[in-house]
Design a protein around this nucleic acid. Structure first.
Lengths: 151, 151
DNA sequence: CTTATACTGAGAATGAGTCTCATTACAAGT
DNA sequence: ACTTGTAATGAGACTCATTCTCAGTATAAG
């Protein structure tokens, strides 16, 4: 997914505002990370980041991801395998779910219909209410084999 | 959730059969783990296991969990936090989803209506088909605050 | 230009999870 | 009961993703 210039502008303004709210600066390293995440458009692992941003030290990448999470710009995705992946917060992109390949670990984004989402939200609230649980959001992951691994 | 004697018998027979198929024995340590998982009825962390089974070495607990996963008796659940949790395979219990507390990390099981599940399965297949993805199953996690952490 | 505070890189430290190895338990046959 | 092959076990060493520390650098505000 390649974002347009206008999108990028809006995105970066939003990110900068959220960082400022947390007394954080929008520096070059952080911006490079946000650009990468926006450009990829799906959750990326730390080694993906290291490949695409070789000049960015791992310790800084991790620290930036923690900071960006704290500012509500990034969220961590627990995949089936052992390593974490990261993507832009959902309100900076759009609500979506994940297809997780159980063979190669690849994660793909999918956007369900809004009528489906409405029903999910309604059911989630019913389930949660009975237990005194206050839902903030949900995630739906589909496990299976990606096109590449089926061959 | 405390299982009845009859349930336990059926469960243990099934588990033993699956282990035998993988050339594994159903030993006391493995049985203790399965008993714990059946008794808890929700995903447990390694430290939970260490607390409840202090005489079981961590290395053996991890090894048993790997073996039991390989035999299709246990599945690993990636929670929001950094540690893995483990529960009995879904076909040994029943299909369900999870409420994840973003504050304390607690995981609670919930079972949605079967009509809801049917719609989820149908939609999942539609989404996956377009991308050549072969779905094996899905998981729906609700993120929010548990009753305890709301107070 | 000063001061306060945030940022950065490099490497050390942490710790969940895995592996090794020497030993023990078990099942099946004799 | 004895042997033999194979699986299971405990203890601790080890791996490696992630976090922390620290010393030095950049930046915004007055």
């Amino acid at each position: 997914m390649v974002t347009t210039a206008e999108h990028d502008e809006g995105l970066h303004e939003l990110v900068e505002a959220r960082l400022r709210r947390a007394d954080l600066r929008y520096t070059a390293g952080r911006r490079a990370l946000v650009d990468l995440l926006a450009d990829e458009g799906h959750p990326v692992s730390i080694s993906d980041i290291a490949d695409r941003l070789p000049q960015l030290p791992r310790s800084s990448a991790y620290r930036h991801l923690v900071d960006l999470q704290g500012a509500g710009v990034v969220r961590r995705v627990a995949a089936g395998d052992e390593f974490a992946r990261f993507e832009l917060a959902e309100d900076l992109t759009e609500h979506h779910h994940h297809l997780l390949c159980v063979s190669c670990g690849k994660v793909t984004d999918v956007t369900p219909s809004s009528s489906f989402e409405r029903q999910v939200s309604r059911t989630v609230e019913e389930l949660a209410d009975d237990l005194g649980f206050e839902p903030h959001g949900h995630r739906l992951d589909v496990l299976g084999l990606c096109a590449g691994c089926r061959a």
